[in-house]
Amino acid sequence: MKILLLGEYSRLHNSLKEGLQKLGHDVTILGFKDGFKAYPVDFPIEKKWDNGLLKKIKVGVLRVTGFDISSYLTYKQFEKYQHHCNDFDVVQLINENTFFCDYTYEKKILDYLFQHNKKVFLLATGDDYLYVNYYFNHPDNPSVVQPYLAEKIEDKHFSNVLKFRTTPFKKLHHYLYQNIQGVIATDIDYHIPLQNHPKYLGLLPSPINLDKFPKNEMEIKDTIVIFHGINRESYFKKGNDFFKKALDSIKAKHASQIEILVAENVPYKKYINLYDQAHIVLDQLYGHDQGSNALEAMAKGKVVFTNASNIFEQHYQLKEKVAINALPDVDYLVNQLSFLIENPSEIIAIGKRARIFIEKEHDYLRIAEKYTNVWTKIEK
């Protein structure tokens, strides 16, 4: 098949592309590189007028006229590439707002894609209309909405989430669902709001290219190394404030037994190597299931503090922990870390189970085959 993957979050589409290519398909990625993470993209689109003085001018023009310069410039970049976006058997959008445009220009791009390709599918990953509204209506369910409701995040820093509660993005949602062949969830957090929706095609776990993560069991010698990777833009959304406080306590409690590594806003290629020497990786809170960063760390046999709730364990019928379910509770995090530091054999055991879990549930070749099965069974 000839396949066009649009957009990139946390290397999901790159891993899927690699699996699909191994199965003999022709695959292209077009879109943003996911900010500072700088993932590979065949046809890259850049965010224009998105910082400094130009951003201030853009915001001023938007307030006065309603015209979004960044959206217009993104659309013009797509126009440059659009002759590469024709006649695909399958097009897959990574999100309801793949191009980060306002309603007008996002719809213009989508119109072209729908008119010039056979089938278009949508991924439920990242924030979208159904996800955001579901979790605002269910605030006790762990999600990125919780730190916002706790007033840790200002509206201006939560605009990429809040926009999905506005009328234009509701319109965009309905337009998309009228034209796509179906929507696929990439983990349990996105699966929950989609249950029983007529366009829902099911949950396909994020693919992990195990060829890039050779099996390598951990060894613990003198100290236990803890890695904390920070994306400053999503500091509170990921629960980094809780991790920071927990690490401060752990440093005081186990100073001679641990080493702490902290990395902030580093490109993907550097990031995945930074935690090679770590035994424990602190990833994120506020959810049920893991994102790609946690999955890749688990593939390396690390003990990851991430989303791994009872719902996740039940879904995969797990009887033993493959990750530590991280909660927004400093005392809980300190207790979990302390237990592992005091029982290093448990670190080794969980790390082994984490690797086995990724091999069983997230192998990129198996997941790529599942995608092709879903795509081909749906009629245009």
Rank of each mutant, 00 (worst) to 15 (best):
F169T: 03
I230N: 09
L247T: 06
K370V: 04
V144K: 05
E217C: 12
D222I: 01
K269F: 07
Y103S: 09
S10I: 00
V281E: 05
I358W: 07
R165D: 01
D68Y: 04
Q195A: 06
A354V: 00
E219K: 13
Y235A: 08
K170T: 01
F242C: 12
Y39I: 00
A278I: 02
R63C: 00
H83V: 11
E264C: 08
R355I: 10
K360T: 04
F78G: 07
D363A: 01
H83Q: 09
Y268W: 13
P267A: 15
I94E: 06
D111S: 03
N293S: 14
K163A: 02
K171C: 01
E369A: 08
Y72C: 09
D42P: 05
L201A: 10
V120N: 04
I69D: 00
L130E: 02
H13A: 00
T65F: 15
I356C: 04
P328A: 13
L340H: 10
L176M: 14
T74H: 03
I109F: 09
K171S: 06
V266Q: 12
P142S: 12
V183G: 06
K76Y: 10
I45C: 05
N137L: 10
T372H: 13
G182F: 12
Q181A: 13
Y134S: 01
C101H: 09
S10V: 05
T223K: 15
V91E: 04
K118L: 08
C85F: 12
Y148I: 05
I280L: 05
A349M: 00
N95A: 14
K118P: 13
A349L: 04
K170R: 15
H197Y: 11
H157V: 01
N179Q: 13
T166W: 03
H173Y: 10
S249H: 12
L20W: 10
Y190R: 07
I180S: 08
V120I: 10
P147H: 05
A323E: 02
S309H: 13
Y268P: 00
E379L: 13
D127R: 00
I341D: 03
V120R: 02
I341C: 01
V262F: 03
L5H: 08
L16P: 02
L122V: 00
V334Q: 06
A38W: 07
G52H: 13
S292R: 03
Q284Y: 03
I45W: 02
K221C: 00
L110V: 02
I280Y: 04
K245F: 11
D241K: 08
L30E: 01
K245M: 15
Y103V: 01
N209G: 10
S159F: 13
N160W: 15
S71M: 14
H83T: 14
I224A: 14
K221G: 07
A297G: 08
N86Q: 14
V144P: 09
Y190L: 09
H254T: 06
K377Q: 07
H84Y: 15
Q115V: 00
S249G: 02
K33D: 03
A323N: 11
F136V: 07
E79G: 03
K245N: 10
S70T: 14
E46V: 09
V161R: 02
Q277I: 06
A263R: 15
L113M: 12
G60T: 14
G202N: 12
D34P: 00
Y39H: 11
K270W: 01
I258N: 04
